[in-house]
């Protein structure tokens, strides 16, 4: 679901942007350079809150921003990490780890409200676009 992007070089007159697919449409979210490696941002896409990250290898990930354990929309503020080789994001609230590839929580199966503890995962890609097209 997530797409690894290694090439970040600007070509003449263009900048690399990050796009997320929600409801079979691709939305341009931000410039690739707006993402600090190892850190996330939140985006409002089609009324949904999405957390976007760029990891140390340059790959981009997109998961839901709502933390199932606290109900707060804070996942984008968590740290990226790896656990037993699995790329994860750590919720900043109570520090559970979520697999960035599948959204599954590695620490607990259920959230306190009884729903499965998992984040939705969104397809994400980077493309070159004319300067200024990314907001």
């Amino acid at each position: 679901m997530t797409t690894a992007v290694m090439n970040t070089k600007d070509t003449a007159g263009e900048t690399t942007v990050v796009e997320v697919s929600v409801g079979e449409r691709w939305f341009t979210v931000c410039a690739y350079d707006a993402l600090v490696p190892g850190r996330g941002v939140a985006a409002l896409v089609d009324g949904r809150q999405i957390a976007l990250y760029r990891d140390r290898t340059g790959a981009v990930h997109a998961v839901g921003n709502r933390d199932p354990f606290s109900g707060a929309h804070v996942i984008s503020r968590g740290l990226l990490g790896s656990r037993d080789g699995v790329p994860v994001v750590l919720s900043p609230m109570y520090k559970q780890a979520f697999d960035l590839r599948t959204g599954a929580c590695l620490d607990e199966e259920e959230a306190p409200d009884g729903t499965p503890a998992a984040l939705p995962v969104w397809p994400v890609r980077t493309t070159n676009a004319p300067v200024g097209s990314a907001s």
């Binding site: 979210v29 939140a42 985006a43 709502r66 707060a72 907001s135």
Partner: peptide, 14 residues
């Protein structure tokens, strides 16, 4: 900012 693509918009769930 609450949202990278909508600066100035606060998180509506708070």
């Amino acid at each position: 900012v609450s949202f990278v693509n909508a600066p100035g918009t606060p998180d509506p769930t708070i």
